[in-house]
Design a protein around this nucleic acid. Structure first.
Length: 979
RNA sequence: GGGCGGUUAGCUCAGCUGGUAGAGCAUCUCGUUUACACCGAGAGGGUCAGCGGUUCGAACCCGUUACCGCCCACCA
């Protein structure tokens, strides 16, 4: 006898520890016979080291674990490679915030001191998420866990990044350039295009006059579409419009379209830039749209991406106006009064000052798209700076080709389009970040600004030394300013970067680039760096390319695309065969979950349970707008009045799998989680029934040897279901697989087989009982196997409890491979007939409100007694409340009637039947059948249908018709019999 | 402005290559038959967003309209 039900809280920890201790998560040893197909590998999308488990992780990891457990059970050498991402900006932000609370600030620390703090933080509180992933049951090989940044001393993961950078630099795929980049004034670093979110906000459109120099005037003529003059005016200015007035201080020109007749008279003339009091030219360029605004555009090359291109094309000077925090900085073109102002304060001041000069024409309200930093949430500033770039265009070609030729397949495949489109329009990838937490760029600058890219400082020094010795014929000594041996020289010559003539003997400096690499640069190496690259390890040989990448569509560009490019670059092979793109998990109202909105669900709350008060407290804590707290509390209480029970990891996983259709998103249903928790209990209870009836082992049982149709039938159904589940998982149709195992377990096994087996199990001892016991145990084993990838805990627990003394754990038990050879068609037909009979009897009884306690005989209206009725009398009795079965020449009065396979049955229930109701019921049944017949007749009467539809379809319709006709006949006879 | 996806039962969603519209939850009726009330038996409930087309046959394919959602984009 088992405990009353599965106790997830107790069992999950115990079972997980057992798995981990047993080494089941590690790939099995290689066999000499192994081919590539015998290896299965997945790399985890590395969660941020600062992260904590959210629903997206839960879905992502559930799917991966299903695949991993399934393939492991298929006997493949299976590796699920875990690890974490150092998450440059996010982590630096977390640690700075923590330090600030202790009145410690990064700006007062050396780089090394700060990094010590971050590493200490990482050791102490980073990586909580790995523990949380264990709670889901994730069967990663934790002993191989990797960190994108490596360790404090560097190590292989860091070496991989360095090598990648150096190799790409030497191949001309990485370069340093002064370009306009997206600058985050909050974090004071460059960021990539992808880290910028464009959001529409209310803004303004200011129209200014830029006066023509030297008192020039011109006749400004405006025409409508038909060429009629609508306005003629003598002007001494050109009208420009801007959404960002402060940038006018850095204007280098005003551009108009070459075909714009309005401005033709003044092209080439100069305007005097207000406030700045500089002269700038009016130029022509294809960029301005004559139909938008005034048709004239101010060109600020250093602060706008379009203007930058125009300025480059036309050789217009670009003036940088701002410092790293977005503050106006002193320069030869910056009027004194604005120096030090924040960019938004400067905007106000500029508008006011222009207005004061009488040059403000008007201000319009306008919706404008504004770029925001996805982490900082401040407005991004285009800034002209020196940065490192990957020439992504050169890498994109092959990455696209490999998807086109099927080397890597997207599932669902429509994501290929998204991938292609981005790849085909790819921009240079800015990979340098002005942060401290990350891989410091392996590039060194000498005192004359030369760049030496090398894996180590020693190599860089050697390269530089070589350069001076050979190329310049100088005996200059190159040193690192960090080298204690040369500290006195540092002091003597000043700071690194000081100029020392290379013609004279002396000391030259080499200082490493202080910037770090974009975190995604290292994430892009993940599928091979985690396997030991650049070393040629056994794991790399066995598990690259990885089998499947499982991830959300939100990081196709960030991550999938980069892995494709870098994988092909360094391994000459795609990083993964399949890319399974799953949905986003949405909240109960269909919104994206977000802490700042307060609509998140914590997977651990669903596993462990949580009170409504605690849930509200958690949801309101992270709110961006704390005033919304009462609203969030109300909505939460409405959605989940009682909080959550402890549903356990299995229920959560099963729900996620069953909702992981290949659509766009998953709206998490807590009702379904409860439903699938119930499912676990149902299975548990069925196993308990087996225990009580001696169904304790299927050892030595050969399912093809079963002789009883009931057993042959359930074995057939098991084989069919196993094949179906296998097919579904292979096709990444997790929801269908989950459905199939659910239906089989609940409906087929528990609702039918278990009931049908009862008379056999409680009957006399003998061959039949033994066969049924073994069959029951065998089917239950198959269920545990098939369900294990979805519900690993309860199945593993039952595996041990159902049959004592098993040698294997379920996690490493071989997957079911039974198929059609176990399907016994005649047994299936027989039991399906029995099911229909039972269902029909139940249905008519329920319709007539016959109490279940009232048993009644079943009369067969035929000439001979169907022997099957005798065979299944023990089942018919409890399941259909049949007292006994007998032959009847005619239907007696006061009897219910039903038809199965065209055969009429009657259930005499004198005194219990409302004859009018029974008449109505029969009429309704007849009507139903007749309407079906009509539909079919319409089809069969259609010559085109008979001529063109496949024979199979036509025959099916004919068969159906015959069935209905027979039914109508018998029902009609029954109705007539009632008088 | 471009691209992608959605619209199916009261709710949340399935429906793989066109061939009798499905599930869970909710609702209603009945039920303490020794696995399970986190249960059992039964029932009701859908013009598959609208329109047009292809086809013997359309929820499914094509076109179009409407609404909803997401992604990308340089209109100052």
């Amino acid at each position: 006898m088992l405990e009353k039900s599965f106790n997830p809280t107790e069992a999950e920890a115990r079972i997980y520890k057992m798995w981990e201790d047993s080494g089941a998560f590690k790939p099995r040893a290689a066999k000499p016979t192994d081919t590539k197909d015998d290896n299965f590998s997945i790399v985890i999308p590395p969660p941020n080291v600062t992260g904590s488990l959210h629903m997206g992780h839960a879905l992502n990891n559930t799917i991966m674990d299903i695949l991993v457990r399934y393939n492991r059970m298929k006997g493949k050498a299976t590796l699920w490679q875990p690890g974490m991402d150092h998450a440059g900006i996010a982590t630096q932000m977390v640690v700075e915030r923590k330090l600030a609370a202790e009145q410690k600030f990064r700006k007062n620390m050396t780089r090394e001191q700060f990094l010590n703090h971050v590493w200490a933080w990482k050791e102490e509180s980073g990586g909580m998420i790995e523990q949380q992933l264990r709670r889901l049951g994730s069967s990663c090989d934790w002993s191989r866990s990797k960190f994108t940044l490596g360790d404090r001393e560097g190590g292989q993961m860091a070496d991989a990044v360095t090598k990648a950078f150096v190799d790409m630099y030497e191949a001309g795929l990485i370069y340093r350039d002064k370009r306009l980049v997206n600058w985050d004034p909050h974090f004071q670093t460059a960021i990539s295009d992808l880290e910028v979110e464009n959001i529409e906000r209310d803004g303004h459109f200011w129209h200014f006059k830029y006066p023509l120099e030297g008192g020039e005037t011109y006749t400004y003529v405006e025409k409508d579409e038909d060429g009629n003059v609508t306005l003629t005016e003598e002007r001494d200015y050109i009208s420009i419009a801007t959404t960002r007035p402060e940038t006018m201080l850095g204007d280098g020109a005003v551009a108009v379209h070459p075909d714009d007749e309005r401005y033709a008279p003044i092209v080439g003339k100069m305007v005097r830039l207000p406030l700045a009091d500089r002269l700038i030219p009016i130029i022509t360029d294809e960029y301005p749209d004559p139909d938008f605004g005034s048709g004239a555009v101010k060109i600020t090359g250093a602060h706008d991406f379009n203007d930058y291109e125009v300025a480059k094309r036309n050789d217009i000077p670009m003036y940088s106006l701002m410092g790293t925090r977005g503050e106006m900085i002193a320069s030869e073109i910056m009027p004194e009064k604005y120096v030090g102002m924040d960019r938004f304060a400067a905007r106000k001041a500029v508008v006011a000052d222009i207005d004061a000069e009488g040059l403000l024409i008007k201000v319009e309200d306008k919706k404008i798209m504004q770029p925001y930093g996805d982490r900082s949430n401040v407005i991004i500033e285009p800034m002209l700076t020196d940065q490192w770039f990957v020439d992504a265009e050169k890498l994109a070609g092959e990455a696209v080709a490999k998807v086109n030729d099927g080397s890597t397949k997207f599932v669902p495949e429509n994501w290929k389009k998204t991938y292609d489109h981005w790849m085909e329009n790819i921009q240079p990838w800015c990979i340098s970040r002005q942060l401290w937490w990350g891989h410091q760029i392996p590039a060194w600058y000498d005192h004359e600004g030369r760049i030496f890219v090398a894996a180590t400082e020693a190599e860089a020094i050697a390269k530089a030394q070589d350069f001076y010795d050979k190329e310049k014929g100088s005996d200059l000594l190159i040193v690192s300013p960090k080298n204690p041996e040369f500290i006195h020289l540092v002091e003597e010559f000043g700071s690194p970067g000081c100029i020392v003539s290379s013609n004279s003997s002396g000391v030259g400096w080499l200082a490493q680039d202080p910037d770090v690499l974009d975190t995604w640069f290292s994430s892009g190496l993940w599928p091979f760096s985690t396997l030991g690259w650049p070393e040629k390890t056994e794991e790399l040989e066995r598990f690259y390319p990885t089998s499947t990448l499982v991830t959300g569509f939100d990081i196709i560009f960030f991550w999938v695309a980069r892995m494709m490019m870098q994988g092909l670059q360094f391994m000459d092979e795609v990083p993964f065969e399949d890319v399974y793109i799953h949905a986003l998990v949405l909240d109960e109202a269909g919104k994206k979950m977000s802490k700042s909105i307060g609509n998140t669900l914590d997977p651990l709350d669903l596993i462990d349970g949580v009170s409504i008060d605690k849930l509200i407290e958690k949801r309101t804590r992270g709110l961006k707008n704390p005033d919304k707290a009462p609203q969030v509390a109300k909505a939460t209480k409405k959605a989940y009045p009682d909080g959550f029970e402890a549903y356990g990891a299995d229920a959560l996983r099963f729900t996620l799998a069953s909702q992981a259709g290949q659509g766009r998103n998953v709206r998490l249903s807590v009702d379904r989680i409860a439903g699938y928790r119930n499912f676990g209990t149902k299975l548990w209870s069925a196993a308990n029934f087996g225990q009580m009836n001696g169904c304790t082992s299927a050892e030595g049982f050969d399912p093809s040897s079963a002789a009883l149709p009931v057993n042959q039938w359930i074995i057939s159904e098991t084989a069919k279901t196993a094949a179906e589940i296998t097919r579904c998982i292979d096709a990444y149709r997790f929801n269908d697989a989950a459905d199939a195992v659910y239906k089989f377990t609940w409906d087929t096994f528990c609702a039918w087989y278990l009931e049908l087996s009862k008379p056999l199990l409680s009957g006399e001892d003998g061959a039949e009982k033994e066969e049924t016991r073994a069959t029951f145990a065998w089917v239950l084993d198959q269920i545990l196997i098939l369900l294990h990838p979805f519900m690993p805990f309860v199945t593993e627990d039952l595996w041990a409890k159902v049959t004592e003394g098993r040698e294997n754990h379920l996690i490493t038990t071989l997957w079911t491979t039974y198929g059609d050879e176990l399907v016994d068609a005649s047994a299936v037909t027989e039991i399906e007939w029995l099911q229909t009979l039972i269902t029909n009897i139940r249905s008519v009884r329920a319709d007539m409100n016959i109490p279940p306690s009232k048993k009644a005989p079943l009369l067969l209206c035929a000439d001979t007694l169907d022997p099957r009725l005798a065979t299944y009398a023990p089942q018919l009795s409890p399941m259909a409340r049949v007292e006994h079965v007998e032959l009847a020449a005619a239907v007696p009065d006061n009897a219910l009637q039903t038809v199965v396979d065209g055969v009429q049955y009657a259930i005499p229930l004198a005194g219990l039947i409302d004859m009018d109701a029974e008449r109505k019921r029969l009429s309704k049944e007849i009507e139903k059948a007749q309407s079906e017949i009509e539909k079919i007749d319409k089809k069969l009467g259609n010559e085109a249908f008979v001529a063109k539809a496949p024979e199979k379809v036509v025959n099916l319709q004919k068969e159906r018709r015959a069935g209905y006709v027979a039914e109508v006949e018998t029902l009609q006879a029954a109705l007539d019999g009632l008088g």
